[in-house]
Simulated scan of single mutants.
Amino acid sequence: MRFKDYYQILGIAEDADLKQIKKAYKKLAIKLHPDVNPVDDGGEKFKEIAQAYKVLKDPKLRAEYDELRKHGGARSHDEFNTASNRQNASSSYSSTVDDGDFSDFFNSIFGEQSVNNARSHSSHRSRAEQFSQKGQDAEIDISISLEETLSKTEKTIQFGIPSIENGKIKQINKTLKVNIPFGVLDNSRIRLKGQGGPGIAQGANGDLYLNIKLKPHPLFDVQAYDLILTIPVSPWEAAIGADVTIPTLNGKVKVNIKPNSQTGQKLRLKGKGLKGKSITGDLIGVLKIVIPSETTESDKILWQKFKSSSTFDPRKNWSN
């Protein structure tokens, strides 16, 4: 068998590291793959680069091959193949592409391997069928407001996805109008079947996954389907009680602050939170007593009168 210079076949230097070997192989595999290079009848060039990659990526096989190459290929490829089989049967190179290695590589570029992969096909199937691959899946983040979760929302999205044409990878830009169902939560994932990258050799298209991100709200925090709202109240409202108006996601409502309320006390409004298909959250108001940032002279006189007449000691429990 004619001696083959695997370094020359992959177009790499003799001291190329594993990263450079893989990079060269990937570039040539895309260019010479039978599905995109019908001129290479029978895929002989593709087999050749696959053989080179199989040997040079394995340290033991590479060392033995380098020894063979150093002596000008004095030992035949058949001898080398036999020796390397004895040394590591699972790493031996052959005249056909290793299915696992092939599928791992193309899966990393174009998406999940088709269920009918090359290993399970008979020799009577076409080469295109043998290397059928599902297209690459795509993922994009979509930000929506809390208000938008209360009903179905239509969004226009744009994204790019790689595709192979004439042996070269190119970017396909897509624009879609998608419906976001009501009740989605932060980090929800929506699958749009077949909206990802195109399949290879009649393989199915990949899928598009939408990752939902809820926009931060200036007033509300979120706990599952519940909304948390801090309600500022004045000292006198907390002391004698008051009716105050608070915001919700779909309008304003009045709530009653009971006399002698304290900072941190909670009140719950049923059904005023986020909505899901089978659950509706609540709005939980957390009271926070707030004093004026500025005090007038008349205010000081009133506060002084209150201090003089009140027996309340906020540090009573410290007396012991």
Rank of each mutant, 00 (worst) to 15 (best):
I140N: 06
I140A: 07
A89K: 07
V115P: 07
D104I: 12
S84M: 13
S126N: 12
E112R: 12
R125A: 14
I109N: 02
F105D: 03
I109D: 00
S126T: 15
A118K: 12
E67N: 08
H71C: 04
S123K: 07
N81D: 05
T82S: 10
F106G: 01
R62L: 10
E67C: 00
H124F: 11
S143C: 00
Q136H: 07
S91E: 14
F131R: 15
Y65I: 07
R69W: 03
R69V: 02
N81K: 07
G135F: 12
S95W: 06
D104G: 01
H71D: 14
I144P: 01
A118R: 14
Q113I: 15
V115R: 07
D66A: 14
R119W: 12
I142V: 15
F105V: 11
S108E: 12
G135L: 11
N116F: 11
S123H: 04
D99K: 02
E139H: 11
E112M: 09
N107K: 09
E64M: 12
S95A: 11
A128W: 02
F110E: 12
G111I: 06
Q136R: 15
S126M: 09
F131K: 13
R125H: 14
F131V: 13
V115I: 10
H124Q: 09
N85V: 09
N81C: 06
F106P: 01
N116G: 06
V97K: 01
D101K: 04
G100T: 08
A63C: 02
R62V: 01
R62H: 00
Q87E: 15
T82R: 13
A138M: 02
N117S: 08
L68I: 04
A118S: 15
H124P: 01
N85L: 08
Y93D: 05
E67H: 08
S145W: 02
Q130E: 13
Q133I: 03
I142A: 03
I109P: 00
H121F: 07
S132V: 04
S132F: 00
T96K: 06
G100R: 07
Y65M: 03
D101G: 10
S126C: 10
D141I: 03
G135R: 14
S95M: 03
S108M: 05
A89R: 09
Q136W: 00
E139P: 01
A63N: 07
T96F: 05
Q136T: 08
E129V: 07
